[in-house]
Simulated scan of single mutants.
Amino acid sequence: MSVGVIYRYFANKEAIIEAIVANDLAEMREKFAEFDTVADDDLIDRLVDIIPMAIEHKYNNEKTALALEVLAEAARNPNVAAIIKKSEAQERELVLTLLRRIYGEDIETSTLLARNEVIAMIFDGMLVRSVCAPDIDRDQMIKWLRKVVRYTFEIKDY
């Protein structure tokens, strides 16, 4: 599709990015809706089970390139940064709801936010790693990432 055709549908680059971000958020909401059917005691197991799917999503050349372009634009453009921050806040609420199901209401929000940030760093970091090390042994990565995620969520030192 040529640039001219794209701008028939979108007013500007920010509108394009807003649509991309909205689509990604809708996909995330759909995935999180699947957790509604999972018993609280099984949530950590379910999170560990979806790691292969998450890796396939993050190690996707087309999606990776687009995501990195959006982030690069956010670093330069405050309007795009605001779009990303708004989406991040909505994603964070989805995760916090899930984490509260795992830990109950007694855990401090700051602890939940820190755990969420650690997991986000790992998964968002996969975008960069998929460019730097695209041929990594995914089976080994899945094996070790499952251990990291399980440890991060199972530890109750709060």
Rank of each mutant, 00 (worst) to 15 (best):
E14Y: 00
N23K: 15
P134T: 06
G125M: 01
L94E: 02
Y9C: 09
A72Q: 15
L66N: 03
I20K: 06
E56M: 07
A74H: 06
N23M: 12
K86Q: 13
V48K: 04
L112K: 00
L25D: 05
R76F: 05
V70K: 02
V128D: 04
A81G: 05
D135K: 11
E108H: 06
M121P: 06
E69A: 14
R8A: 01
V95R: 12
Y158M: 15
K147I: 09
A19E: 05
A26H: 11
L113D: 13
V70N: 06
T152H: 06
L68F: 01
M141D: 08
E88M: 13
T152N: 12
I55E: 07
M121F: 08
I6K: 10
N23C: 10
T152I: 08
D40I: 00
I51C: 04
F153W: 13
T111R: 13
R8V: 01
V118N: 10
Q90C: 05
D137I: 03
V148M: 05
D135G: 10
R115M: 09
E18P: 04
A33G: 03
D137A: 07
V148C: 05
G125V: 01
N60E: 12
E30V: 08
Y59D: 06
M53L: 15
I20Y: 09
N60R: 03
E34Q: 13
E108P: 09
I107K: 11
A39L: 08
E30H: 14
A11N: 06
R101C: 02
R115T: 04
Y7C: 05
M126G: 03
K13R: 15
L98M: 10
L113K: 14
M141T: 09
I50A: 04
M121H: 15
D41E: 15
I84Q: 13
E69L: 15
R129N: 10
A15I: 00
I107H: 08
V149H: 02
R115V: 01
I136C: 03
K156L: 09
K86C: 08
Y9W: 06
A54W: 07
E88G: 13
V149E: 00
I84T: 10
N116F: 04
I20G: 03
A26F: 06
V70P: 01
